[in-house]
Design a protein around this nucleic acid. Structure first.
Lengths: 130, 130
DNA sequence: CTAGGACCTGACGTTGACGTCAGAGGCAAG
DNA sequence: CTTGCCTCTGACGTCAACGTCAGGTCCTAG
């Protein structure tokens, strides 16, 4: 596949793919004229890269993780890194969950206020952000 | 409280607090000489701001959310925004969970490989990123 | 009253993940 | 062979959330 098709299928820009290559995250064969040609698995790889980015990992963290997806290569060091990054993601998950719950509190209290028509003077929402 | 104390208690930098004020996220009284003075609730507010940032909301999204925490002010529009942002956070939660599970897969398969000593040729990890 | 730490206002620097533009070449269709 | 879309390589632009530095002020302890 050429770059445009990969980009379309993975839902990213062409620029992003070139950037990934620049960062060593994604390899492409080159035609005689210099055009990039990707294997079909590249699409999945790009999607995975995206999800790691979305998980807040920087490109060097992603770079440390990605080799694990290649043929059976998995050193002790990589195993450590995987566990470390999993822990980070897990921590972020918990923080996010807490944030969602706070938002729920604000929404719930807000609804209570509106059910009671006017503003209940003292019952401000400030206490939510504890 | 003065800015340094708020920063310390909230676990952010002084610069961050001035930035929040610049963005209209955080108000401070001023002494005659121009020094900022914060109410004790400011600490909780800052922590909330941080968690919203951590949830991937930009400062203008935060700006739309924060007024909800003030005295009983809660218009229909704000309610909508709250629901919308909650939905975003929830979506990100689900994406993050999927990413964590993928990492778990990679770790598990990696362990299986290492349990079996050498590389199992065809059993590459590429399929994980589906 | 003086030393030194906390604070002030600009204002420019930084980092990551791309966007965007310029100028040039490649490729399938008609 | 030309038209039109795709692709190429630089290289500069962007945006957010601050970091950092300069030059000056404030305030509290001794």
């Amino acid at each position: 596949m050429r770059i445009g098709e990969v980009a379309a299928q993975a839902g990213v820009s062409v620029r992003a793919l070139r950037y990934y290559e620049e960062q060593g995250l994604l390899h492409a064969e080159r035609s005689a004229s210099g055009q990039r040609h990707y294997s079909p698995e590249a699409v999945a790889r790009v999607r995975f890269i995206q999800s790691l980015y979305a998980a807040g990992l920087g490109s060097r963290a992603v770079l440390r993780i990605l080799p694990c997806m290649e043929r059976g290569v998995l050193t002790d060091e990589m195993h450590e890194r995987l566990l470390a990054e999993r822990a980070r993601v897990q921590a972020q998950l918990e923080e996010l969950t807490a944030t969602r719950d706070k938002l729920d509190d604000v929404i719930r209290i807000g609804q209570a206020h509106r059910a009671g028509q006017e503003q209940h003077e003292g019952t401000a929402l400030c206490g939510v952000a504890s």
